[in-house]
């Protein structure tokens, strides 16, 4: 029975059948760790993030890292060619990944990435949106909700101001961006379910 890891945070979806489950997991972990560290480095640069309690910094990062990675790596999903580039640099078509066992999550990620990329945001806009994704006061385990909420509101105001300035004739972009937040939550939940299934397997 062949096994595949269809998450693009892998070097390749193919798993060496000679390797133990532990070795496969270790390799996967080595592969995505640098990306997670980048998310932490990004968070540290958000003005006000380091002023939150360490507990809340960790809670926000634990809950939001997947969503930040989806936004940061949206360009790995080539909507035109319907393929995904893995960290190893190789591209795999959606059909190939489907035969390897990818399901609704991958299709939903494609839909999300297509809509996000279609907004044509600048690097600065994308970066501020990513900060809004990360600093969400309704994540579980937040001890000082008021502080996180205050920072979240400041970031949302800054995002609205930037989008309004850059796209004066496209007022719907800001609303569309905010509507991406529940979409990301939904992807996050689907991803957690797949991780659970993987671990049980």
């Amino acid at each position: 029975s062949r096994m595949f890891l269809v998450c693009p945070m892998n070097m390749s979806p193919r798993v060496d059948p000679q390797k133990s489950g532990h070795e496969v997991w270790e390799e996967f972990s080595r592969s995505f760790t640098p990306a997670v560290r980048e998310v932490v480095e990004f968070a540290k640069k958000i003005p006000g993030f380091r002023e939150l309690s360490q507990h809340d910094q960790v809670s926000l990062l634990k809950a939001g890292t997947f969503e930040v990675l989806v936004v940061r790596f949206a360009s790995l999903f080539d909507v035109t060619e319907r393929c995904v580039t893995f960290l190893g640099g190789n591209k795999y078509s959606v059909d190939a990944l489907r035969t390897m066992g990818s399901g609704d999550l991958l299709s939903s990620m494609f839909d999300f990435c297509e809509k996000l990329m279609n907004l044509g945001l600048s690097e600065e806009e994308m970066s501020l949106f990513t900060a809004v994704v990360l600093v969400s006061a309704d994540r579980s385990g937040i001890e000082n909700v008021n502080s996180v909420e205050a920072l979240q509101e400041t970031l949302i105001r800054a995002l609205r101001s930037l989008i309004t300035r850059n796209h004066p004739n496209e007022s719907a972009i800001f609303t569309k961006l905010l509507l991406k937040l529940p979409d990301l939550r939904s992807l996050n939940n689907m991803h957690s379910e797949q991780l659970l299934a993987f671990k049980v397997h």
Binding site: S29, T33, V36, R37, V40, E41, K44, R50, Q54, Q57, V58, L61, K62, A63, T65, H191, S192, L195, L196, K199, V200
Partner: peptide, 27 residues
């Protein structure tokens, strides 16, 4: 399995990355 982030070892990576910065600041 109720906490996927901990399952993945994410919390450990996150804490180390955050603490690294604290140590730098102390220096």
């Amino acid at each position: 399995f109720s906490d996927p982030a901990s399952n993945l070892g994410l919390e450990d990576i996150i804490r180390k990355a955050l603490m690294g910065n604290l140590e730098e600041r102390q220096e």
